[in-house]
C-alpha cells in the first residue's frame, strides 16, 4: 500500500491535463466553433478554431464535464494544432485516448466528445466558407 496521498483516480498524464489544461478558453474571432453534448451523461464541450491556409492555427476548448472530458479536450486541442483540415477530419478519439495513456472504459465516451466537438467546429467553418466560395 502506498501512502494515501499518492493515489489518483486517473493516470499522471490525464491528471496533468486535467489540472493544467492546455488551450483552455475561446479563440477570439474564431473561424469555426463546435459545441456538442454527450448523450450518455449530459456533458457539454465546445471547441473553437482559428484556421489559416487550410491549417488549424489555434484551437481552444471549454468543457462542462468530468475530469476525463477536460483532459480529453485539452489533449485533443494540443494534438490538432498545426494539422490540415483534411487531417483533422480524420481525427479519431482513439488518438486522444492513446496520447493520454489510456482512459477507463466507462470514460471513453468523454474522448469521443472531443472528436465530435472538433468535427463540429470544422463543419461550422466549412459552412461559413461555403457562401463566400459561392460568391467568388
Amino acid at each position: 500500500m502506498k501512502e494515501t496521498k499518492e493515489y489518483t483516480l486517473y493516470n499522471d498524464t490525464v491528471m496533468d491535463h486535467f489540472l493544467n489544461p492546455r488551450n483552455m478558453g475561446d479563440v477570439q474571432e474564431a473561424d469555426g466553433v463546435g459545441e456538442v453534448g454527450a448523450a450518455a451523461c449530459g456533458d457539454i464541450m465546445k471547441i473553437s478554431l482559428k484556421i489559416r491556409d487550410g491549417k488549424i492555427e489555434d484551437a481552444r476548448f471549454k468543457t462542462f464535464g468530468c475530469g476525463s472530458a477536460i483532459a480529453s479536450s485539452s489533449m485533443a486541442t494540443e494534438l490538432i494544432k498545426g494539422r490540415t483540415l483534411e487531417e483533422a477530419k480524420n481525427f479519431s478519439n482513439q488518438e486522444v485516448v492513446d496520447a493520454l495513456g489510456g482512459l477507463p472504459p466507462v470514460k471513453i465516451h468523454c474522448s469521443v466528445l472531443a472528436e465530435e466537438a472538433l468535427k463540429a467546429a470544422i463543419e461550422d467553418y466549412e459552412a461559413k466558407q461555403a457562401p463566400k466560395t459561392a460568391a467568388a
Binding site: 496521498k5 483516480l9 486535467f18 489540472l19 450518455a40 451523461c41 456533458d43 462542462f64 464535464g65
Partner: peptide, 30 residues
C-alpha cells in the same frame, strides 16, 4: 451550477479534501 461534479471532486481531492458526488459522470451507469 454551471459545473460538473466529478471535476469538483477531483480538484477537491487534489487539495486534500475527500468528498462524494451524485453526478452522472461519477456513476458507473452514467
Amino acid at each position: 451550477e454551471f459545473i460538473e461534479g466529478e471535476g469538483q471532486l477531483l480538484l477537491l481531492d487534489y487539495q486534500g479534501i475527500a468528498v462524494a458526488s451524485g453526478s452522472s459522470c461519477v456513476s458507473k451507469s452514467l
